[in-house]
Design a protein around this nucleic acid. Structure first.
Length: 751
DNA sequence: AGCACGCCGACT
DNA sequence: GTCGGCGTGCTC
């Protein structure tokens, strides 16, 4: 009888697997790839993922330790899922465990909680014998019990902690929970049956009539055979969501167990999507649609993850982290607003959820739909090459709804002609806002800068308030009466006088959303102004509440950052004003104009959705700039071809592949020196002959939290050469010293 | 990443 | 005299 070993991935920066013995025949039997194990690691016991099962190990026997135990409550992850994690680890240059384990719910990564996971088969093994053990007071708590029963009916797995939270008095401990013996099973049936009946009896919702273009798109997706990437290019309001709903309905109906994954760029957008999907798929069990995002309570996230993993969830709707969910029957993937930079994780494993979605679809041989009004140039180029199939929705879906008129307000000309302005709000914009107020229509003012003013400066000596920990100016926040650093969160009171020269005339410079909110109140008397940005929505759920005020018509002017630009279907908005967009026109970041165009298209799309004539006013000093010209004609295609031509000439993505090495040091010199050594190491790597390394440079915000940061860009026309270089580079980098931290980023968005 | 070991300044 | 600073090294 051969001894059995498992090769285990751990959440640990070394890219190696660790070997362990299976000490008993039971363990040897449980040892399959994809199983979760608890293993001793150094002085600790950690959870790992079994990647291979072998009968020999190269590790000397005396160094081998034995597996503590296997997690029996969780069925093993599939081979496909392991391959996905392995691909992501390889592509983004990380250890397999660093990719795989953070993708699992916390309940699985903590062995102490394994015993509190109830798999369905265990749940039903519990007998009604403990019925009598329930406290007498139970009937008085019938509603809590019903909630508990519904939670059970809704999920395959339930954490005992969740059940206690639902019903604390009746089930105070795990013991009574188990000994209660599932008297609740009766209640589950009682509660679940009426719900099912209600779903059957609910009138089928009237489906909107599809446009020809929508119809063609749905048909193409539904009839796709095998891996089929689609780029659904639809102007705002053209009914992309309706295409997703129809295509998914067809695919899920065709395959009784099939699962769908729908990704949205940010948490704020999940509630409205969830509502749309629940309404359309009302015939499905309520537990068949689950959300996955970082805003969920931990137990909820665990249950939703298990619903996906067990195959019970048919539709998983989530943010980027959901791309790594276990979906054994995955049959179609949708990535809504695929161009959105939020799909790129900006810390830890810096993956692109959109790119992993493509890989996943390819791996499984299923269709994937990338939807956007302004596709990323990467995706647009793939479609140009014929690698993605382009589906176009060129018209707004609602009858009479036409694209808004875009007008540019030339700020130079306004100034030259001496026309009145109100604190940065131009005369034409104020007039348009007042006209909307009189007509009872809503307006939206977009400005991508939160706070009151981005700087606080002294007129006399030129001092500007800066962060003591970062190389950045601090932002004035008036409601909180504080100066705040947007990079590290440092806060201080607003000084009464200049700390350099004592001058009391220190003044805010520039404009943020708070200041615009204030200006609007005086420029448009009588208007109810609401501000929505990261500050006003800090409390959980408050964004939803604020948006519903807008929908309810309790707001006349909505002012905010990009948060107001995304997804929301405001029926009564007929005017969009854009302030301060020019800065992105001349940014050193080559993607800034692509992002600006997408943002302005998106925010413009908020105007005139329900048949009201929409108008967009953009205040600018460069009214003849090509970007604004394309925007005013709603010409994404023209903008994309022109920008792609520029990118090709300048050898920029998508025509080259890039990676960044970032270093953090106690001094800038240390960080730069590390990067220079790193660049020198490249000469030892054969594949690096096809790779260009640029000079190491400080980051724009060079210092954050007293740490100095610099980066080195490398690029190649060959993705394979770049990947091979990175693979060979990492062990050499590990040998270098002198910095606090360093990390590699593949396909960086911000350079 | 944790968590050790290991070698130098201000304190019960 | 030691408590503790973080540099260096290891984890099957």
């Amino acid at each position: 009888m051969n001894e059995v070993f498992v090769r285990v991935a751990l959440d640990h920066p070394l890219p190696t697997l660790f070997d362990y013995r299976c000490a008993t025949p039971e363990m040897a039997a449980a040892a399959v790839p994809g199983a979760l194990v608890s293993v001793p690691f150094g002085k600790r016991h950690v959870v790992g993922l079994v990647c291979e099962v072998t009968t020999h190990s190269d590790v000397p026997a005396e160094r081998l330790k034995a597996v503590d135990k296997f997690c029996t409550a969780c069925p093993p992850l599939s081979e496909n899922w392991l391959a996905l994690a392995a691909f992501a680890a390889d592509y983004y240059q990380r250890g397999l465990g660093e990719v795989a384990l953070p993708a699992l719910p916390q309940a699985l990564r903590d062995t102490a909680r394994w015993s509190r996971l109830f798999a369905p088969e265990e749940r039903y093994r519990l007998t009604p014998a403990g019925r009598a053990a329930l406290p007498d007071a139970l009937p008085a708590r019938a509603s809590a019990l019903r909630k508990l029963a519904q939670a059970l009916a809704d999920s395959d797995y339930l954490l005992a902690a969740d059940a206690r939270a639902l019903h604390p008095k009746a089930l105070p401990t795990l013991d009574t929970w188990q000994s209660s013996g599932w008297v609740e099973l009766d209640v589950i049936e009682a509660a679940a049956v009426p719900a099912a009946v209600a779903a059957e009896n609910a009138p089928a919702p009237a489906l909107p009539t599809l446009t020809d273009e929508q119809d063609a798109a749905v048909e193409a997706i539904r009839d796709a055979d095998g891996f089929a990437p689609f780029l659904l290019h639809g102007v705002t309001g053209s009914g992309k969501t309706e295409v997703y709903l129809r295509a998914l309905a067809d695919i899920l109906a065709a395959k009784p167990a099939a699962q769908a994954l729908v990704l949205v760029p940010e948490i704020n957008l999940t509630p409205q999507f969830e509502a749309a999907f629940r309404a359309r798929f009302a015939a499905l069990d309520s537990s068949a649609i689950v959300t996955l995002h970082s805003g969920l309570a931990e137990g909820e996230r665990a249950r939703h993850w298990f619903a996906a993993h067990s195959g019970r969830a048919r539709i998983v709707l989530g943010t980027r982290l959901a791309v790594l969910a276990s979906l054994p029957q995955l049959a179609v993937i949708v990535v809504d607003e695929e161009h959105d930079p939020a799909y790129k994780q900006q810390e830890g494993l810096r993956y692109s959820a959109r790119d992993l979605a493509i890989y996943r679809a390819k791996q499984l041989g299923v269709p994937v739909v990338l939807g956007s009004a302004t596709p990323s140039l990467e995706s647009w180029w793939q479609a140009d090459q014929g690698r993605y199939k382009r589906l176009t929705l060129s018209r707004r879906a609602v009858a009479d709804a036409v694209l808004p008129t875009v007008k540019l307000v030339d700020l130079e000309e306004e100034r030259r002609r001496g026309r009145a302005s109100f604190e940065g709000l131009s005369g034409p914009l104020v007039a348009a806002l007042r006209a909307r107020l009189e007509r009872g229509e809503q307006s939206l003012v977009f400005l991508n800068r939160r706070g009151y003013a981005p700087q606080l400066a002294c007129d006399a000596c030129g001092w500007v308030a800066g962060c003591p920990r970062c190389s950045a100016y601090v932002v004035l926040h008036k409601p909180e009466r504080a100066l705040r650093c947007h990079h590290c969160g440092w806060e201080s009171r607003i000084p009464r006088s200049c700390p350099e020269c004592g001058n009391v005339d220190i003044a805010p410079m520039g404009r943020g959303t708070q200041r615009v909110e204030e200006s609007l109140a005086s420029a448009v008397p009588g208007a109810r102004v609401l501000r929505i940005d990261a500050d006003s929505t800090r409390r959980k759920g408050s964004a939803q509440a604020l948006f519903s005020d807008v929908h309810a018509g309790e707001v006349d002017i909505l002012v905010g950052t990009q948060m107001i630009a995304k997804g929301h279907d405001f029926q009564r908005v007929s005017l969009v004003g854009v302030l301060n967009a020019d800065t992105a026109l001349f940014s050193h970041d080559f993607r800034a104009s692509e992002r600006l165009f997408a943002q302005l298209m998106q925010v413009s799309g908020r105007a005139g959705r329900a048949g009201l004539p929409g108008e967009v006013l953009i205040q600018t000093r460069y009214p003849r700039h090509a970007l604004y010209h394309a925007l005013s004609r709603h010409d994404y295609v023209g903008f994309a071809s022109a920008t792609l031509a520029e990118r090709r000439d300048a050898h920029l993505p998508p025509f080259v592949y890039q990676a960044l090495l970032r270093a953090e040091g106690r001094t800038l010199e240390a960080a730069l020196a590390f990067l220079q050594q790193a660049a020198a190491e490249l000469t030892q790597i054969p594949a690096a002959a096809r790779v260009t390394a640029y000079d190491a440079v400080p980051l724009t915000i060079v210092k954050v939290m007293h740490v100095h940061r610099a980066q080195l860009l490398i690029e190649s026309a060959s993705r394979a050469a770049l990947q091979a270089t990175l693979r060979a580079w990492q062990p050499l980098l590990r040998g270098l010293k002198g910095v606090l931290r360093w990390n590699l980023e593949v396909d960086p968005l911000d350079i």
